[in-house]
Computed example of a mutant assay.
Amino acid sequence: MRDRQSARGERRSREFEAFVAGAAGRLLHAATLLTAEAPDANPRARRLLTLALAHTYARWDGLRGDDPYDCARRYLVTRFAHTAWHRHGAFGPARTGARGPLAGLTPRERLVLVLRIYEGVAEERTAALLGLPAERVHTICDRATATVLHPARPGSADRTVTKAAPS
C-alpha cells in the first residue's frame, strides 16, 4: 500500500514537472504582458506564475482529463483581474512606471488583448472568463490593438483614461 502511494506521488511529481517545463515560459510571458513589467524585471508576473502553478499542482489529481495549462491560465488571469480591480478600481488606468510593451493599456485592455491575441482564446470564452458581453470584449480588443499598433507620439496629447462603472 505504502509503495503504491509512493509510486503515485512520484508519478504525479514527474507529470507536474514535465508540465511546468513545457508551460512555465509561456505562462510567465503572459503574466509579464498582463502586469506590463519589463521582461527582465517582472516580480509581479513571477508571483502570479508561482500562484498559478501552485494552484494547478493542488488541483492536479482532480483535473482528470482537463487541460492543466487552461487551469493555470484561468487562475493567472483571474488572480490578475482580482488584484487589478482592488488596486485600480473598475480596471482604471495603468500602473505608473510600467515599462512593458502593453504599458499604455488599462489592466482590462491588457487582459483582453493577452487572452485574445497572445493566448488565442475565443471571444466567447474570454467574455465568459471576464464576465463581459462578447461584443464588449470585441470592442476592448479592437481599441487595445489600435493603441498598441498606433501609440501616441511623444509630445502629443496623452491618452486619457477615465474611471467608469464596471461593464
Rank of each mutant, 00 (worst) to 15 (best):
A72G: 05
A98N: 10
R73N: 01
G92K: 06
A127H: 08
I117N: 13
W85G: 09
P101R: 13
A52I: 03
T78D: 07
R79P: 00
A72F: 02
E124G: 08
P68T: 04
R74N: 10
A122L: 11
F91K: 02
G131K: 04
L105V: 06
D66C: 02
T78A: 11
D70N: 01
D70S: 06
E123I: 12
Y118E: 15
E119S: 12
A72K: 01
A122W: 07
L51W: 12
A54S: 12
A98W: 01
T50I: 00
L76P: 06
T56E: 05
G62I: 00
L111P: 06
A122R: 15
V112M: 07
C71V: 12
E109G: 14
G100H: 10
V114I: 10
A128N: 10
A122S: 15
L102V: 01
E109K: 05
T56V: 05
A94D: 06
D70E: 13
E123N: 13
V112N: 08
G65Q: 04
E123L: 14
A128P: 04
L76T: 03
Y69T: 12
L132N: 01
V121I: 14
L102Q: 05
T83H: 12
E109F: 05
R59N: 09
A98S: 15
A90V: 10
F80A: 03
P101E: 15
R64V: 11
T126G: 09
W60F: 01
D66V: 00
A54C: 03
R64N: 07
P133E: 07
R95K: 07
G131N: 05
L111D: 09
R74C: 00
T56H: 01
D66M: 01
H55Y: 11
L63M: 07
R125P: 05
V121D: 14
L51V: 09
L113V: 07
A103Y: 04
I117L: 14
A122P: 10
F80L: 01
A84C: 03
D70F: 00
H55C: 00
L53G: 03
R74F: 01
H82S: 09
G100A: 05
R74D: 14
P93K: 04
V121H: 06
V121W: 12
T126H: 10
L63C: 02
P107V: 00
D67V: 01
C71I: 00
G100T: 02
T106R: 15
L129K: 00
A103F: 04
G92H: 06
P133F: 03
L53E: 10
A90E: 12
A122V: 06
V112P: 08
